[in-house]
Design a protein around this nucleic acid. Structure first.
Length: 903
RNA sequence: GCGAAAGUGGCGGAAUUGGUAGACGCACUGGAUUUAGGUUCCAGCGCCCCACGGCGUGGGGGUUCGAGUCCCCCCUUUCGCACCA
């Protein structure tokens, strides 16, 4: 063992060793419990960022921990390789998206390997390869035939200058990011997955996902948005004659307060009215401007216009004006809403703006409304001015109104979901081709299985628009049904489709006769899934949906893909900038900035810069810290340790160079501690028996720490507190009697050494340690015996510490465990066990409170009865002092914790 | 706008079930060793006060013997909003 910790040497050695031994190769084994540990696969953007390092370190800690606990562990890795950035890079650098992507994968794979992750690389997959996406296409054709996939019109962002569809991300302040043109909404045909058919199951199964964070389940629940409401038909002519306008509302109790109805700009009624109303037509055209993003729609100014049309109240037959409003969404519900300004905030604002009447019909159960209303009263209450329904409660009225409407054939109870069907068509190149052939005679025909995959050409030039749309060699084909001339679909699939089933494909990535085989049922569900909180809704909902689709075609036997979910927080860092002439900010990378006397300055010129606050690491703020630089400087173990120590995994993690230094310092100290122990020569294992008080206390702490670290990793997944507990243990070990002198001063350094055992001299450089076993030595006096005991206990502690740290910092621990236990191998070493006997304590300390304020501590027997604890508390001088002679009114005893005397 | 979280020393964070607020680390201060600097080691370190003691977990109220933790109102920040991944 080298005296100096050299990560740059031991880390590549360890990685090479594991690779040669294929130490993390997984295979199905029915004799062991399986543990499938999966981190969300990366998009190959170019190089790893800190978020990746954090994600994969968390996964690796859990994978390695479970391996030590005896599980059959699978930890795979792959590439979410299709997507928009490759096309952007292609335009910027004049390269093909495929080549760019594959080069990025090569580089990032090297980086991942330098982190020392316990990954089974033999299962690596990339979603842009035909042997992956052919099965996605195969499933698509099956689902198309089943009717799970269908085609309909949908609204997209259209750039009228570039003549291209824009992603929401490419719309900035309502304009195309390249052209700067005002974006328009445009309807085009798209393929949809009927995810709404699974809405009920996706919702109800959330209750069974006990290993998911509550907040993620709540977000999904709200996203699915099941609501019980009432469908109401407003006739277009008096007395209920003619067609009806259907609306859905959760507040049918406010029906008598309706003063207008509002329809979406795309609603047929609006289109009809616009036919002979140029101003309305112009307003509808105006509504077409802007992006389709819901956040934009929701924050824009609410505008409307009277169509001049009327509908009639289903109960009172009163005429009600029909407005077109830009805030009503065609794709949600019926594309029309009934408006009750008195009882809805948005309607209230709209009514105020267009001087529409406000009619209150619900008041609090006790008291009255102050009229005229200053704001909408949105609570449930009691109805008034509502015909036969006056006097009923809101809940009661909703039921009754629904029933009456149903009997009249004018609507009734209805359950709706906020969730919409999943549109997967993308007018982009770098994605999985949709396997459909458009035949003028046969319509949309799925590509037959023997013609799959529909291979995406990789050797292309990219400019504006998808190259395959201009490539007859790609889209010209014959109809599989009639043999006539036909055209292939040139849209590709949403990349969320690939990421919705990759977790299953890892079980059988080599299978070329089907999508999945029985191995998927061995490994699934994923036991632990780890990824960013930003995926809480979309990706995780789509993957759950896809799992059910695969189940329903017999590919998997489980209902849910991910048994346990850990959503990791972001990695954030300080931002720095300088004001440019003209007010523009020039963002400076934290690596180029140093803090001198509390002022951040640019290292290059020593002049001050402005701190802009801590934010998510991003290109736009130039505050990304390159993980490679950290690995190169300190090693992967330091990077891993810092990331696990600086914050619990679910919280955001603030990057700190000083914190990294601290982590590195700890590893150096760990190395030296083990080195000193090993230099002390052979040591006998502690075989039980009485220990002096200090050693017994230390050994108790050791086993308490093992229990805590086990719980922190396995149940709580709080690696920061696990590491802190190990640090405390190390600190306690350093303070053990006689230890300090041995480490730093040597034998010639004063009185303390007189107590040391002559049989175990401190190490002297150059003298081999072999054969210096204190247990075999001649010393029989008490100090000598204690010293050898101390070394035995320390050996026990160090072995446990190294094994507990192994999942977090595997490279250093691999070397240290071999040094401590010659012949030991890290991979295969079991997790340390708790010795229950070491935990026993005779006397415990209780907090003493008087009137809830901490006044002191008392010591009592561990098994002391309540009476004895009370007596002991009352007798203590602290209690006497603060009671000031007053009698105790009440004494609260919390066993093992505290006593509170109330006076 | 809607949905979901978070807010604790100079900083990152700990306090797991309503029971010692500030573990562990960073920064800082003093000391030792070495000294060119650094490294390493020891000690101190929430605020106010000479002290006794008091105050203190974003702000305001409440429940309780006891609140960082539970309830109500408010403020701020972060994430998501269906074509970024």
């Amino acid at each position: 063992m080298d005296a100096i910790y050299r990560p740059e040497i031991i880390e590549p050695e360890g990685q090479q060793h594991w690779e040669e031994k294929q130490a993390f190769r997984a295979s199905e084994d029915s004799t062991k419990l399986k543990y499938y540990c999966l981190s969300m696969f990366p998009y190959p953007s170019g190089k790893l960022h800190m978020g990746h390092v954090r994600n994969y370190t968390i996964g690796d800690v859990l994978a390695r921990y479970h391996r030590m606990k005896g599980y059959n562990v699978l930890q795979p890795m792959g590439w979410d390789a299709f997507g928009l950035p490759a096309e952007n890079a292609a335009i910027a650098n004049d390269v093909a998206p495929a080549g760019w992507t594959y080069a990025n994968i090569d580089y990032m794979k090297k980086q991942l390997k330098s982190l020392g992750l316990a990954i089974d690389w033999s299962r690596e997959l990339a979603t842009c390869k035909p042997d992956y996406y052919r099965w996605e296409q195969w499933l698509f054709t099956r689902l198309f035939e089943k009717g799970v996939i269908y085609k309909k019109m949908a609204t997209v962002n259209w750039d009228p200058v570039d003549h291209t569809v824009l992603a929401n991300e490419q719309v900035i302040d309502g304009r195309g990011w390249r052209s700067g043109a005002l974006v328009e909404k445009r309807d085009i045909p798209m393929y949809f997955f009927r995810i709404t058919d699974y809405a009920e199951e996706l919702l109800s199964e959330l209750d069974n996902l006990t290993g998911w964070p509550e907040r993620v389940k709540t977000m999904q629940k709200n996203w699915i948005g099941k609501s019980f409401g009432v469908e109401i038909h407003f006739p277009l002519q008096p007395q209920g004659k003619g067609d009806v306008l259907k609306v859905f509302t959760t507040r049918a109790d406010t029906l008598f307060g309706v003063t207008y109805v509002a329809v979406a700009a795309e609603h047929p009624l609006a289109q009809q009215a616009a036919g002979h109303n140029p101003a309305l037509a112009e307003f509808i055209a105006e509504c077409k401007q802007g992006s389709v993003a819901e956040a934009d729609m929701a924050t824009m100014e609410k505008k409307g216009m009277d169509t001049g049309l009327k509908v009639y109240h289903p109960f009172t037959n009163e005429p009600i004006p029909v407005y077109v409003a830009n805030y009503v969404l065609m794709g949600y519900g019926e594309g029309a809403v009934m408006a009750v300004p008195a009882h809805d905030e948005r309607d209230f604002a709209f009514a105020g703006k267009y001087a529409l009447p406000i009619k209150a019909v619900v008041k609090p159960a006790e008291g009255d409304l102050e009229l005229p209303l200053q704001a909408a009263y949105t609570e449930h209450g009691v109805l008034f001015d509502s015909g036969d329904f006056s006097g009923r409660t809101s809940e009661d009225a909703i039921e009754k109104i629904a029933l009456v409407l149903k009997n009249l054939g004018m609507g009734g109870r209805r359950t709706t979901y906020r969730l919409r069907d999943w549109g997967i068509s993308r007018q982009r190149y770098w994605g999985c081709p949709i396997p459909i052939i458009h035949c003028p005679a046969c319509g949309d025909v799925p590509v037959p299985e023997d013609q799959l995959p529909v291979v995406l050409p990789e050797d292309v030039k990219i400019d504006v628009g998808s190259p395959i749309k201009k490539m007859p060699a790609f889209y010209e084909c014959t109809c599989p049904k009639c043999g006539g001339r036909a055209e292939r679909e040139t849209d590709t699939m949403d990349t969320f489709v690939e990421s919705s089933w990759y977790y299953a494909r890892y079980a059988c990535p080599d299978l070329d006769t089907g999508m999945l085989d029985g191995r998927a049922n061995y490994w699934l569900p994923v036991d632990q899934y780890i990824g960013g909180i930003e995926h809480a809704i979309l990706h995780l909902l789509y993957a759950r949906f896809f799992h059910k689709l695969m189940r329903d075609v017999g590919l998997v036997s489980t209902n849910e893909p991910f048994a346990n979910l850990l959503t990791q927080g972001m990695v954030i860092a300080e931002t720095y900038y300088r004001e440019q002439p003209g007010g523009k900010k020039q963002w400076l990378n934290p690596a180029d900035v140093e803090v001198v006397d509390g002022t951040p300055v640019l290292t290059a010129d020593g002049k001050p810069v402005i701190a802009g606050g801590t934010e998510k690491m991003s290109k736009s703020k130039n505050n990304g810290v390159d993980p490679q630089a950290i690995i190169d400087k300190y090693g992967a173990d330091t990077a891993r340790l810092f990331m696990m120590f600086a914050a619990p995994p679910e919280q955001s993690l603030e990057w700190s160079d000083a914190g990294v230094e601290g982590a590195h310092r700890f590893l150096k100290r760990l190395w030296k501690t083990v080195y000193d122990q090993v230099q002390g020569g052979e040591v006998s294992a502690y075989a039980g028996g009485e220990l002096p008080e200090a050693l017994a206390g230390f050994r108790r702490q050791l086993h308490q720490t093992i229990a805590k670290v086990t719980d922190d990793i396995e149940r709580r997944k709080q690696f920061n507190t696990a590491i802190a507990a190990i640090m405390e243990l190390m600190n306690a070990m350093a303070k053990l009697e006689g230890d300090r002198e041995a480490q730093s001063r040597g034998p010639a350094c004063g009185d303390a050494t007189a107590e040391r055992d002559a049989g175990a001299p401190p190490a002297v450089a150059g003298i081999p340690s072999a054969g210096l076993s204190p247990s075999g030595g001649p010393s029989t006096d008490a100090p000598g015996r204690q010293d050898s005991l101390t070394r035995s206990i320390k050996q026990e502690a160090m072995e446990a510490i190294v094994l507990m740290l192994a999942p977090i910092v595997p490279h250093i621990c691999r070397v240290l465990i071999k040094a401590l236990k010659p012949g030991a191998c890290l991979v295969g070493s079991p997790w340390p066990a708790v010795d229950e006997a070491a935990l026993v304590q005779n006397e415990i300390e209780l907090m003493l409170q008087v009137n809830g304020k901490l006044r002191g501590k008392i010591k009592v027997a561990a098994d002391a009865a309540k009476d004895a604890v009370e007596a002991s508390a009352l007798a203590s001088p602290e209690a006497q002092k603060h009671m000031e002679g007053r009698p105790a009114k009440k004494i609260v005893v919390v066993p093992g914790r505290l006593v509170n005397i109330v006076v």
